[in-house]
């Protein structure tokens, strides 16, 4: 039987020296849902993703992915369980080529021994090529990531996630800092890759949000301000007041 929720976040709290960046937050994500989290700067959006993927340790609460408690797991264990994360600022391996960046993210040979004997076989090459085409970088495979444009780095990082083929994909402002043309291409790309998996996206671009969101969660001072369809959230007076109004 299909479970009702792929991710259950309950009473999630983190306190930085008394300041509660995320405060008793609960939300649930269904399989194949695309959840968008919006909210003003400093609302705690990035911190929520940090907590789910193990980068920041929670003070209290629970995060269950398929009934596995993520809060007690190490970052790499969470990734290997099927949760992928894209960071707000593009973070790729600058000293390595695009090919190597994708290769390191390929979900094989992740133990010490596995990495020592890992072979670039035809499957690996084919998959990397396929991903590179998806992220518009097929011609840059041998280029060092340091030489890519900001937008290209964002794409590369998305590609690094795609090759992991996560069940739950978390994207932190994937179109931020992009040119209009890049933005359009990225929206297209994201629309394609969010099919057949659950996605949590943080985004400010409302047009983009309306386009992709199954449901929207509005975060304010670490708490849920409103939740529901884009329409409902947009017409919520509380949301208009703290976020959409200005």
């Amino acid at each position: 039987m299909q479970e009702r929720f792929i991710l259950k976040v309950e009473d999630l709290t983190v306190s930085f020296d008394g300041f509660k960046a995320v405060d008793a937050l609960s939300f649930y994500v269904e399989p194949n849902e695309c959840r968008v989290i919006i909210g003003p700067n400093g609302a705690g959006k990035t911190t929520v993703l940090d907590l789910i993927c193990g980068r920041t340790k929670a003070t209290a609460g629970s995060v269950k992915f398929h009934d596995q408690e993520l809060l007690t797991m190490r970052e790499d264990q969470i990734v290997n369980a099927g949760v992928g994360r894209k960071f707000q600022t593009p973070s790729v391996y600058e000293d390595l080529t695009v090919f190597e960046n994708l290769e390191l993210s390929y979900p094989k040979g992740h133990s010490v021994f596995g990495a020592l004997v890992f072979k670039r076989d035809t499957d690996v090459r084919a998959r990397i090529k396929e991903i590179a085409e998806t992220i518009f970088l097929a011609d840059q495979l041998d280029e060092k990531a340091a030489f890519l444009s900001h937008g290209q780095k964002q794409w590369l990082e998305i590609g690094m996630l795609l090759i992991q083929d996560p069940e739950l994909l978390m994207l932190d402002e994937p179109v931020a800092g992009m040119s209009v043309a890049e933005r359009k291409k990225t929206a297209e790309l994201l629309n394609r890759i969010i099919q057949d998996r659950s996605v949590i996206v943080i985004e400010h671009d409302m047009g983009f949000v309306a386009d992709i969101a199954t449901r929207v969660t509005v975060l304010h001072q670490g708490k849920t301000l409103s939740e529901g369809s884009m329409e409902r959230v947009q017409n919520d007076p509380k949301v208009v007041e703290v976020y959409l109004g200005h």
Binding site: E75, N80, R85, S91, D95, H110, A115
Partner: peptide, 25 residues
């Protein structure tokens, strides 16, 4: 020359990111 060698370079520059590629650094 192994993938481990490239991982080392990745770890040197972006240790945190390597964890999120699924490696126990």
């Amino acid at each position: 020359k192994s993938k481990l060698g490239r991982l080392l370079i990745a770890m040197r520059d972006q240790e945190d990111r390597v964890r999120f590629s699924g490696y126990n650094v």
